[in-house]
Design a protein around this nucleic acid. Structure first.
Lengths: 214, 214
DNA sequence: CCCTAAGTTGAGAATGCCCTCAAGTTCAGC
DNA sequence: GCTGAACTTGAGGGCATTCTCAACTTAGGG
């Protein structure tokens, strides 16, 4: 993806790979705020090497998790071409939530934004375009309530992320029930008037940033 | 509420009051994880005095926020006697969420539990009984879907808490839209089969505890 | 007014994490 | 094999926070 200034020396590349593998595992188990020393130790490499390769936490998250975000974007692409548009909408939400449930770091990434993780942020932008399409199709088919907006998508991410944080250890599929309630609220026949206009994209972006820092 | 071993000396009582007032303000603005030094400074008292009076963070939270929790329990009592049971259900959710939106510390308290805050935990238990009643009435009236369980209440708390955390600063009533979607999903006609049994009370309790620590 | 139990104080020990950099090690091209 | 550039290392400085305690201050009963 990047211009790749110069190839790394072999040992450096090997250490980089070890770090990414370790980061994937540790982020998945313990979240994105894990001490970086723990990842270095897991990779069998010193903390200095970690900082050599990844000057910020975001850079490491980028390397570890961009793949998973790309997978989610692919899911969105597939959802946008499902024959039944409501099926596409619901299927996409379920699949991405499954990804969230399987990886604590990815789960956190879905609810907040991490400006340092540039590749991931770019992928998210791509995903957003596909979401617009998924929503539009489901509404044209009359299945998704007409007052749903793409900004309402964030509600699902935030909700399910929290439920997974809370229940992931001992009731790992509780989020399915939570999502089912939300989906029932999104179906066209369920619609009663909403009390507030939807969040604009920049308001969602700001909200995601707010969750980043305390 | 407590047996109150011995009354505090006048200056000590005054400092205690100052601390509680400061804690209320600082928790409301910056959440329950604010450094305790900041509260002591706000109260104009040294950190040692804070620890004298409140040996744990939970004890201070208890003193600062039990009142608000008691208010929420009163709301539940009123909701349980509203003429229209669905109105009672929806009204209660909206009122408590308003409390959450107005106080960042209280908001955090709603989503997780804080075992040290014993008075608050006791009040929550009282509230739970009233919630059972509110749910039961709304279901008997045929307004709330029959497969709703008290454990599903937690989904609302977690969802709205997250949305408030994310949007509280710049879109302080966004949670109303989120809640409206959820309410539409809870109405009886919206019901489609749920994919999983509800969380049992002890599973909810464990989940709340999980959110407490990292 | 004096005395003492009650209360206050803030420096500092302990912890945990971030990030740097000078010294040492290894790779790879010649 | 030599050499210079690339890379690794981990001790240590920095910072934020929690919690303690010995020395000091004060309320208030006699």
């Amino acid at each position: 993806m990047k211009p790749d200034a110069r190839p790394l020396r072999r040992d450096a590349q090997r250490n980089r790979d070890l770090l990414v593998v370790a980061a994937r595992q540790v982020f998945a188990e313990r979240g994105l705020e894990v001490p970086l020393e723990d990842i270095a130790r897991e990779a069998g490499v010193s903390i200095g090497t970690l900082y050599n390769r990844f000057p910020t936490r975001g850079a490491l998250v980028d390397a570890a998790l961009a793949g998973k975000v790309a997978t989610a974007v692919e899911l969105a692409g597939r959802a946008a071409t499902k024959p039944d548009p409501w099926e596409g909408f619901a299927w996409f939400l379920e699949r991405t939530c499954e990804l969230q449930a399987a990886d604590r770091g990815y789960n956190e990434l879905c609810a907040r934004s991490l400006p340092e993780a540039t590749e991931i942020e770019a992928l998210k932008a791509k995903g957003h375009a596909l979401v617009l399409e998924i929503v539009d199709r489901a509404q044209r088919a009359g299945a998704l309530r007409a007052d749903f907006r793409d900004g309402d998508f964030a509600f699902v991410l935030w909700s399910v992320a929290r439920t997974i944080e809370a229940t992931g250890r001992h009731a790992p599929d509780a989020w399915r029930r939570h999502l089912a309630f939300m989906l029932d609220g999104f179906r066209a026949p369920a619609a009663s008037p909403l009390p507030r206009r939807a969040l604009a994209p920049d308001e969602v972006a700001e909200a995601m940033r707010n969750l980043g820092d305390r």
